[in-house]
C-alpha cells in the first residue's frame, strides 16, 4: 500500500490527502456549514449530468441551423441558454468557429478555467503543466503532439481563458455528413474537438448509426 507517493506513513491505508478531506468534511458538516446530501447532489451533477454531450448538442445545432450559429457566435451565453445549458463557470461564453482558414484552440494558462455547462469538468491534461505552458508557446507543436496537423497556411489562434470568459470551439463539420440529423451529428462531436485540439472525423461509409 506504500507504492503511491501520497500514501500516509505508519502503514495507514488512508493517505494524508484522504485524511484531510475527511477532516474538513466532518468539521464543516458538524458546524452545519455544509449539508452532506448537497455534496452528493453536486457530485452527481458534475459526474453524470453536465458534460461534453451538452456541448456536442450546441455544436450539432449550430451545424444544422445557420441562424442559430449566427446567434451563437454573436452572444454565446444567450444562444447556449436557448438549449437549456447555463450555470456556474459558463456565465460569459465566447464561441469560436474553426474554418478552413482559422483554427482556434483553448487553454487556461493560469489554472483550469473551462466552460462547465457545455463541457463539464476539465480533463487532467487540460489542467496540467505541460499543456498550460506550451499551448501558448508552441501551439502547432502541441496540436501535432495531440494528433492534429494544421497546414502552414491556416492561422492558429490560441485563447487563454479567464475566470470570467470561457470559450467553446465549433469544430469544422466533416464532409459526408450532409443530411444527418442533429442527434447523429452530435454523436460524432468530441470533447477535444470543442477545446480545439482535435478534428471531428466522420465515420467511414457504413459506420453511420
Amino acid at each position: 500500500m506504500s507504492d503511491h507517493h501520497d500514501h500516509a506513513e505508519e502503514g495507514s491505508p488512508l493517505t494524508e490527502t484522504e485524511l484531510r478531506v475527511r477532516a474538513l468534511e466532518s468539521l464543516l458538516v458538524e458546524k452545519g456549514l455544509v449539508d452532506p446530501t448537497a455534496l452528493d447532489a453536486l457530485i452527481d451533477t458534475y459526474e453524470t449530468k453536465v458534460g461534453p454531450r451538452n456541448g456536442a448538442h450546441v455544436v450539432a445545432h449550430a451545424w444544422a441551423d445557420p441562424a442559430y450559429k449566427v446567434r451563437l457566435l454573436e452572444d454565446g451565453s444567450k444562444a447556449i441558454a436557448e438549449l437549456g445549458y447555463m450555470g456556474r463557470q459558463g456565465e460569459d461564453m465566447v464561441v469560436l468557429e474553426n474554418t478552413p482558414k482559422v483554427h482556434n484552440m483553448v487553454v487556461c494558462t493560469l489554472c483550469s478555467c473551462y466552460p462547465w455547462p457545455v463541457l463539464g469538468l476539465p480533463p487532467v491534461w487540460y489542467k496540467s503543466a505541460p499543456y498550460r505552458s506550451r499551448a501558448v508557446l508552441d501551439p502547432r507543436g502541441v496540436l501535432r503532439e495531440l494528433g492534429v496537423e494544421v497546414p502552414e497556411d491556416v492561422e492558429v489562434r490560441v485563447w487563454d481563458s479567464t475566470s470570467e470568459v470561457r470559450y467553446l470551439v465549433i469544430p469544422e463539420r466533416p464532409r459526408g455528413t450532409e443530411g444527418w440529423s442533429e442527434a447523429e451529428l452530435a454523436g460524432i462531436v468530441t470533447r477535444d474537438s470543442m477545446i480545439g485540439v482535435a478534428k471531428v472525423q466522420a465515420p467511414a461509409r457504413g459506420g453511420r448509426r
Binding site: L110, G120, P123, W125, A129, P130, R132, S133, A135
Partner: peptide, 20 residues
C-alpha cells in the same frame, strides 16, 4: 501557477476515456 510560456514541463499525457 503562471505557466504560459514555461519550458521543460514535459509531454502532454492524454488519458483515453478519462473518468470525471
Amino acid at each position: 501557477h503562471d505557466m504560459g510560456g514555461m519550458h521543460g514541463l514535459g509531454p502532454i499525457d492524454r488519458e483515453e476515456n478519462e473518468p470525471v
